[in-house]
């Protein structure tokens, strides 16, 4: 693994590599509590015993085959209500990075922030922030399947399973960090407009008719229009426009 990411200005200038840990987001939290983590601090794990997905769900990965890392950001230029644009920036950056690594494939963002290659999940993001009256810190945790080709969890793929060759983990990480930094600085300096546009361009199932399940278990047909100014999914159902939160809708087929 590279020790120094020459092409970035902020991200990954300080790196902790852990062969094994519970969760890189949790490791970052303890560094923050001890006051030793600056913006851009990177923690990479070879293997996670308690990788976090969405609340209560886990992220599984074989040792030293995939990328599991957390980056510390201090987006104090965002109000808590606007924090979802950080999700947009990270998803767009990760999408661009995977697209660069797999140029011949369709790379999309499944709302809110999973990355899909040819319709199958390859990466997930979990952002944890702390808010007082402003956003103090945001820990961006990313899990990307890279060289794991066997025993991938159901409904998941890896860079290798898509193209049949191995990738250098350090190089893949470098590509992701470059794109993350570019998107983050764009958000900070120019705002979210172009990032939101790009997000909509690569949104999985947008503009198509698909089946979804609501929180009561009811199945319905709808068309994704995009996200609203709170990051919620906007869906056209017959002639109505309905907004959904993450827990309230499931993508079926």
């Amino acid at each position: 693994m590279h020790k120094y990411f020459a092409k970035t200005r902020i991200l990954g200038k300080k790196l902790h590599y852990l062969t094994q840990c519970h969760s890189t987001n949790e490791e970052m939290m303890s560094l923050i509590e001890n006051g030793v983590a600056d913006e851009g601090h990177l923690i990479v794990a070879g293997y996670q015993t308690g990788g976090k997905g969405q609340r209560g769900s886990s992220w599984e990965s074989a040792p030293d085959q995939n990328l599991l890392f957390s980056i510390l950001l201090k987006p104090n230029f965002l109000t808590p209500q606007r924090l979802h644009v950080l999700n947009v920036a990270v998803a767009v950056a990760l999408n661009r990075a995977v697209n660069k690594l797999l140029p011949a494939h369709q790379v999309e963002v499944k709302w809110p922030n999973d990355i899909y290659v040819d319709g199958i999940k390859v990466a997930g993001v979990l952002i944890e922030s702390s808010i007082s009256n402003q956003v103090d810190e945001a820990i961006v945790g990313i899990g990307l399947n890279v060289n794991q080709a066997d025993q991938l969890p159901h409904g998941a793929c890896s860079l290798k399973s898509v193209v049949g060759k191995d990738f250098d983990l350090g190089e893949v990480l470098q590509v992701i960090l470059e794109h993350l930094e570019e998107a983050y600085l764009e958000l900070k300096e120019s705002g979210s407009k172009r990032l939101l546009y790009d997000y909509h361009q690569v949104m999985h199932w947008r503009g198509e008719i698909h089946e979804y399940e609501d929180k009561y278990g009811g199945v319905f047909t709808g068309e994704i229009i995009g996200i609203n100014d709170q990051g919620q999914l906007m869906m056209k159902q017959e002639d109505r426009l309905v907004s959904y939160d993450v827990k309230h809708i499931k993508f079926l087929n």
């Binding site: 969405q54 609340r55 808590p80 924090l83 979802h84 950080l86 999700n87 809110p112 922030n113 993001v125 979990l126 952002i127 944890e128 922030s129 702390s130 808010i131 007082s132 009256n133 103090d136 945001a138 709170q230 990051g231 919620q232 939160d245 993450v246």
Partner: peptide, 21 residues
């Protein structure tokens, strides 16, 4: 006291620890 986490508010898979002021 200020800085103590009182709860989490989750929005769009962003998990936000809310601190007391």
């Amino acid at each position: 006291k200020p800085g103590d986490t009182v709860c989490i508010v989750e929005a769009m898979k962003l998990f936000n620890e809310i601190e007391s002021e």
